[in-house]
């Protein structure tokens, strides 16, 4: 249960009762579990009420028109991406066929480096995600 309170910056900011532990912490938790939460929920419900008009969904026709416009944009973007992919691919394909014939050591070295680079990128990404950073 005490693990519940180990926030990332714990200890630095929460300086009020630094050497409390175990029981007193749990007691404080219990007492304060009533503090702020009901207010929060009531406040957010009031917020919903005040913005009830904005939350009314648009008509089906409007939504459909929006979807059509968006799917058209999407289709165009995909087409552009596809063309770009093919263009780059043709160059790459040409280069690799050329490399296999004229410079095999270079070709195989590059082929070995690609998965290694991919794994490094993956590990870096997972590391960032695991620490939960997004800045």
């Amino acid at each position: 249960m005490t693990k519940d309170n180990t926030g990332p910056d714990n200890g630095n900011k929460w300086g009020e009762t630094p050497d409390e532990d175990g029981k007193s912490k749990a007691a404080e938790d219990h007492a304060s579990s009533e503090f702020a939460l009901p207010e929060l929920i009531a406040g957010l419900e009031r917020l919903d009420r005040v913005y009830a008009n904005e939350a009314v969904p648009p008509s089906l026709g409007e939504l459909q028109a929006q979807l059509i416009a968006a799917s058209e944009r999407h289709r165009r973007r995909m087409l552009r991406e596809w063309l770009l992919f093919w263009l780059i691919s043709l160059f790459l394909l040409g280069f690799s066929l050329l490399a296999i014939t004229s410079a095999p050591p270079l070709y195989w070295m590059v082929q070995g480096l690609i998965p290694i680079a991919g794994i490094i990128a993956l590990v870096m990404r997972l590391g960032r995600k695991g620490r939960g950073e997004w800045r």
């Binding site: 992919f85 780059i88 691919s89 790459l92 394909l93 280069f95 690799s96 590059v110 082929q111 690609i114 998965p115 991919g118």
Partner: peptide
């Protein structure tokens, strides 16, 4: 998932990209 990586690598060698 990383379409450019898989796609472009897949254009240069066979069959390692597919296996991986």
């Amino acid at each position: 998932r990383w379409r450019w990586f898989w796609g472009l690598w897949g254009m240069t060698t066979f069959p390692l990209p597919t296996i991986l």
